[in-house]
Design a protein around this nucleic acid. Structure first.
Lengths: 117, 117
DNA sequence: GTGGTTATATCGTGACTCTATATATCGGCC
DNA sequence: GGCCGATATATAGAGTCACGATATAACCAC
């Protein structure tokens, strides 16, 4: 009985969300910093544009996975986001699900007649 | 210098295309059979709907990765697709690229402070 | 010859990213 | 002390793609 109900579009969306959440795992950051850190940690592979980043941040905040607060002490306005408990649980759970899906994906792509190296 | 130019939407599209190409690796098949085989080999995880499958098949044929021929010997019309040489090269090359991307993705998601189990 | 299954095809909708544009503030420069 | 590029957040418009609904047609059972 197929339970998973896999959706390729939702999968792509989840990947973007998880990348952002993972960037916040160590400490709270503002949007611009998140982009720079992800780009740096992935050696330039994953790079967010402005028009992609901010809608996702707003969505994550709306879902209660992150919480954003304006820092006013510095003159330049920055919205600093931090992981909520819900967001932290979501991150670890969904990361495991992504790992499961990609391992099964690679297995199907490689096929049965393919020797493991 | 970031060379990769990663695109999450193209990545999702590629996954669908590669799943179909991999189903044709062993032997030529018609559309309906491709869906059943992928669903079977992935234990029900990856399931294509009609409205998803046929546009992708047409696209792959247009790009020269597969070649479709109508089998007329049987009364029921079936369009049987087979991998072209270009398609076979594309499959192995892109599969390697997908494996690379997902391994780097998981590494970023897990983070540096995560011990490898 | 009617109905259910196999099989291919397309159109419309909706979801999502991406490009372009807008706004605002800081620091350096002269 | 005003200009300008870099930092930083925001949104609207366009384009792309999967997905649901619908259409067509031939096979088989009865």
């Amino acid at each position: 009985m197929p339970e998973d109900d896999f959706d390729i579009q939702g999968f792509a969306r989840d990947i973007n969300e998880l990348l952002i959440l993972s960037a916040l795992r160590s400490e709270p950051k503002h949007g611009y910093q998140i982009v720079l850190d992800i780009e740096n940690e992935s050696n330039g592979l994953f790079r967010f544009r402005h028009g992609t980043l901010y809608p996702i941040l707003h969505r994550l905040e709306k879902e209660g996975l992150i919480r954003g607060t304006w820092s006013k002490d510095v003159g330049r306005r920055k919205k600093v986001y931090s992981l909520t408990g819900k967001g932290r649980r979501h991150l670890s759970g969904e990361t495991g699900r992504v790992e499961d899906v990609v391992s099964r994906l690679v297995r199907v792509l490689r096929g049965p007649d393919q020797a493991p190296a």
